[in-house]
Every structure is written in C-alpha cells, then in structure tokens.
C-alpha cells in the first residue's frame, strides 16, 4: 500500500467515523494503530493477547437467516446462492436414522426457511449455522503453496487476497466447505471472523444481528469471557471431530446427524 492511499483512507475515515470512534473507547484506541499506518504492529490491539473462537448454540437458532444477510452485507460477499462466508442448514432427521438426514439450505438461509415439513411427521428438525471453524491446525493453511492463507497470532485464519494465486487447493482441503473463489477477484474468500470489527472491539456482524444469541464470539485468552462458562456448563462438540483440525467453532446441541 502506498502512503498517499493510506492518508486518503485516513482522512476519509476520520470524516466519516469521528462520532462513532468517540463513542466506544476500544474502537478509539484501535484507531490509533490505524493512524500509525502499520496496523499489524499497533500497540492497542495486541493479537497475542487474544485467541478467538465462536460458540454456536443450536438450541437457540431459529433459522431467521439474519446472520447470512448481515455477513453478506458486512463483508461484500457475492449474492449468488453458492458463495457464503456463513450459511444455515436445516436438518430433518426421521426416526433414529442419523445416517440419512434430509438437509437443505435454500440460498444458504439468506431468505429464511419456508416451511416444508409437517409438525407431526415423527421427525426432528433443527437449524445448524455454519462458518469457518478457524481451525488451529487448518488444512487450508497447510496446503496453501505461498502463505496466502494463514493463522494470525490471535487464532483467526485469514486470507491475503493480494497474495492469493487462485489455485483453489485450500478449497479442496477444507473439510467443512467454508471457502469459495470470489468471481470478482479470482482469489479465495471465507469468513475472516469480521477481523476488521473484532480488532476494533466490536463483535462479528453475524453475532451482532443474531436475535437469540445463538452465536457468540468468544476470546479464549480472556479469563472473564462468558465462553469459558458456557463450554464448562454445556456438552459441546465441534464439527467433524475425526478431522482433528483443532476447530474453534464450538457447538451446543450438535446432533449426531450433522456433518
């Protein structure tokens, strides 16, 4: 990035964001290192002091799709129905047949879920929000030939879109289907855990707009974070634990049929 561009960004942001910045202390201190021009070396957000994780409570998800809409708006995700940083799946499990659930995700849940099942069909139904698991041992990071996807010191798996070749190896390596190639840039994209927000003291767009609190951003390095109590008090699970990716998306109420 050139200095003049940074300056321009700075002025623009100052004009637009002054009020907002004054409002929240953390955001204001975050601003300091944006001003410093080398955000990664900023003193006020110390990446090494955080270890971000996501807590997803299936018992609370109502399938409104608010997270999907907020994510696409916040992160400028293409609107086509096969590009998602986060999406919601609907499971329908008949009887005890955990191996063959009916699953659908109409437009990733962006428009909600029109009712297609009957209350008395002897099955159970529930919603499962999905997103990048920000794995500690990410297969995607492992296979990237050039280091264009990496694990930041705070545990967030990020993409360097200015460096990505678009070889798509990481898309193949992700067991959870969390990555897509942005057709506008020909580079890979996926959930960044709203890195531009969480480093300013805000929560992610999906958590901010989840009406029931089914998604909670957590900082595992902050002893006061409620995520510790939540994991202690609930039976939590990660997706596809057999993949041993060190997933940091913890699910409560995860049914055995979910994959």
């Amino acid at each position: 990035m050139s200095d003049s561009r940074t300056d321009k960004n700075r002025r623009e942001f100052l004009l637009q964001g002054t009020k907002f910045i004054v409002l929240t202390g953390v955001a204001a201190s975050a601003w300091d290192y944006v001003l410093a021009g080398t955000p990664e070396a900023a003193p006020s957000y110390k990446a090494s002091q955080h270890w971000w994780a996501m807590m997803i409570d299936i018992e609370k998800c109502i399938g409104c799709g608010g997270c999907v809409r907020a994510c696409k708006a916040e992160n400028n995700v293409p609107l086509e129905p096969y590009y998602f940083r986060t999406w919601v799946e609907r499971y329908h499990v008949r009887g005890e047949d955990l191996a063959h659930p009916d699953v659908d995700t109409p437009n990733g849940g962006y428009d909600g879920f029109p009712e297609i099942y009957h209350a008395d069909d002897g099955a159970k139904s529930f919603f499962v929000p999905k997103m990048c698991n920000h794995c500690e041992h990410s297969p995607c990071v492992q296979v990237c030939p050039v280091g264009a996807t990496f694990e930041a010191p705070d545990g967030v798996v990020l993409v360097d879109s200015a460096y990505c070749l678009g070889c798509r190896y990481c898309v193949q390596a992700c067991p959870y289907g969390c990555r897509y190639i942005d057709p506008r840039t020909n580079t890979v994209d996926k959930c960044s855990l709203c890195y531009h927000r969480i480093t300013k003291g805000l929560t992610t767009a999906c958590c901010e707009t989840c009406p029931t609190g089914a998604r909670q951003l957590g900082d595992l390095r902050n002893p006061k974070d409620p995520i510790h109590a939540f994991i202690r008090e609930h039976k939590v699970q990660v997706l596809k634990p057999q993949m041993a990716t060190g997933s940091k998306a913890y699910y409560n109420g995860l049914d055995g049929s979910v994959r």
Binding site: Q142, V143, C144, P145, V146, G147, A148, Y163, C164, L165, G166, C167, R168, Y169, I181, T185, N186, T187
Partner: peptide, 25 residues
C-alpha cells in the same frame, strides 16, 4: 496449471515464498 490459476501472474510466488508444508509449493 498456469492457465487454471486465478492469478497466473502471481505464480512466481511459488518460488519466492514456497510454503514448505504444501505439496503444491
């Protein structure tokens, strides 16, 4: 491979900063 890449002009990076854990690198 070159024709398939989203950014063929960046393929030189495989030589500049090869990720040793990546089979492709």
């Amino acid at each position: 491979l070159q024709l398939h890449l989203g950014h063929p002009e960046r393929s030189i990076q495989m030589y500049l900063t090869p990720h040793t854990q990546s089979a492709m690198a």
